[in-house]
Design a binder for these strands. Sequence first.
DNA 1: CATGAATGAGGGTTCATTCAT
DNA 2: GATGAATGAACCCTCATTCAT
Lengths: 202, 202, 202, 202
Amino acid sequence: MSQTTPGAGRKPRTDAQRNRSHILDTAEEYFSAHGVSGSLDAIAKQAGVGPGTLYRHFPNREALLAALLSARRERLEQRRESLRAGAGDAADALAQWLDALAEWAGAFDGLPEPLRQALAEGTSPLALTCEGFVSTTDEFLRAAQREGGARPEVRGRDLFLAVLAVSWVRGAAMADDASGAALSALLRTGWSSAPARPGAEG
Amino acid sequence: MSQTTPGAGRKPRTDAQRNRSHILDTAEEYFSAHGVSGSLDAIAKQAGVGPGTLYRHFPNREALLAALLSARRERLEQRRESLRAGAGDAADALAQWLDALAEWAGAFDGLPEPLRQALAEGTSPLALTCEGFVSTTDEFLRAAQREGGARPEVRGRDLFLAVLAVSWVRGAAMADDASGAALSALLRTGWSSAPARPGAEG
Amino acid sequence: MSQTTPGAGRKPRTDAQRNRSHILDTAEEYFSAHGVSGSLDAIAKQAGVGPGTLYRHFPNREALLAALLSARRERLEQRRESLRAGAGDAADALAQWLDALAEWAGAFDGLPEPLRQALAEGTSPLALTCEGFVSTTDEFLRAAQREGGARPEVRGRDLFLAVLAVSWVRGAAMADDASGAALSALLRTGWSSAPARPGAEG
Amino acid sequence: MSQTTPGAGRKPRTDAQRNRSHILDTAEEYFSAHGVSGSLDAIAKQAGVGPGTLYRHFPNREALLAALLSARRERLEQRRESLRAGAGDAADALAQWLDALAEWAGAFDGLPEPLRQALAEGTSPLALTCEGFVSTTDEFLRAAQREGGARPEVRGRDLFLAVLAVSWVRGAAMADDASGAALSALLRTGWSSAPARPGAEG
DNA sequence: CATGAATGAGGGTTCATTCAT
DNA sequence: GATGAATGAACCCTCATTCAT
């Protein structure tokens, strides 16, 4: 009655994997449609498994989220590599990295919230993922600072949080889609047009 | 059971008012302690009224929130007036206005979320309040732009959203309290140290 | 779809009472059939109310149990009165009171367990009821002790617990129904045939 | 993952035994800590075996319990032997046997319950163990009766049940630890101080 | 023999909201 | 106006048991 596509026969053992990824697919779909607060039970049902099965694979919502994001993380890490390899401006690289990060954090409706919490509380499987990205952000940032393309007082963690915040704003179906881009720009240049403290950075 | 002595038979119209403001006081306290997602039922109970009574005055959570914020809005409007009157730099006035706004948006845990939604969806009593502040922000912003103290491409709505976003980040008990301030600074100056406007500063 | 017998129209307000007692009736029936560990949700469903309604009236299983038993308590208290009024032997009165108590404690399958817990932990609405009966037991006991019909070292609380224990034994569908009676007798006379009090019988 | 070095290919038959006794040790520990209603899954996990393995050895909770108790049974049977050998009073021997039994039945929190059920239903591996002890109790009892130290109408089965009941009462963390002892005494002498029906037994 | 993934009913509980009184 | 009982979907989680490998 439950999990097999009819005619697929039995799927045990190795299909723990298949089941797991089926749950992941379903969750991806479900979170995309309903946001990260969607019901776990509903995901299980939609995946055609009992709640216990989902629970076995992912003991809580964050674990599921973490698994979901880790798939996307790969893409992000590829991006990181290509940006590292890229010859150009360190500041541009940072900007592009932040964009990639923002896209990642905006994968699902409401995702920024648990990410921020993970960062704040440290526990939760999401925290590790976040910390990793904070480090990467720091690298890009320091490179840019060395080249004089980024303000020296800025810290990677703040930048990461800022990206989260921008994603959070984007999250709502905005009346005005320009806002997302505008905020990214704001983040880069600030609203002030005063000189960026001449002499502070050469 | 709450405000009338039983058997009095006289229920002066003012009782409705008294009830209403008692609910507001309770809600203020409750939201401060439990964040804006606290149970409305609990507020009603704590206020000593039935849930129906609460609902009569405030048909939903946002209405209650709006009423709560409108009290604080006065303070904010006073701030606006004093900033308008202030002689100084228009950019500084804007910065101070944004700070005041951030404080307002951080009144309760989780408040930025409904504010953003209100702004995005337009419906909801909160939307009006927000729009009002967007306008005010716009005024300050345009003044600053006229003086050359703010970038011309920035819009008041984006600034308002940015303030919301900063408040949202602050919301979590951050491991690092400096982040809030850092983000505010970031918002003003951006992370880039490239000249704010080519030619503007040599 | 839910709680009204079709055609009964609406039942609000006063029918909180009717509802409440309907739940009680259902619970009585349900506990009789399935023992005191039966599902509360199932009771609610069978009573035609939502789980929340049941929950409103009885915040937990013990509260429900207490309400159920308080109905029977009246019968027990009548018994107490008639025993008090009865002229006869104080020891016999005690014995009959203990029998009544045992019947009360055996009302539902598994009831002795929560009763014992209530007595041990003191919290729980059941505890009060139990304590009351302990007191009554003490009264009967002391009367019997004064007449020399009960051992002086025995305490009311122990007797109450013993009754609970006897009911507990009875609880299982015994292969041998004589056991219940045998235990009651045992409780009265003990298994030893040594003189009850040295000198009391020569 | 548990007992074989992976790749060894050799799984001597004794491993089953080793597994079995490891499960038993774990269960002993677990039941001691959590009472007999603890989760079997948890025991399996703690023992480092799959739930299936546990189930192979012990098809249900009672089987596991029976195995656990059979270890303790040996101690009990030694006690029996020493009591049989003892010269003294048959009634005292019975009393001591009952004490030993009570201790046995109190080995784990909540143990009396399944024991009673086993006795009542006859099925279940525990029943055999219980019946054995009923017989032994009967032996001691009859000896005492022959010496005039026990009432003639008492039966071994009732005494066994009574011991279970006393253990059951002891089970709860009693506000008053004296109750356990008091009940044992009660069981021996009864609460009545009337002569033990002189003439009925000599 | 051992494994451990899967099952899935069932547990208690919460709460925004409606509506008869 | 105020009341508060009723609703009932939804939530997360547990666990004894089966069975393909």
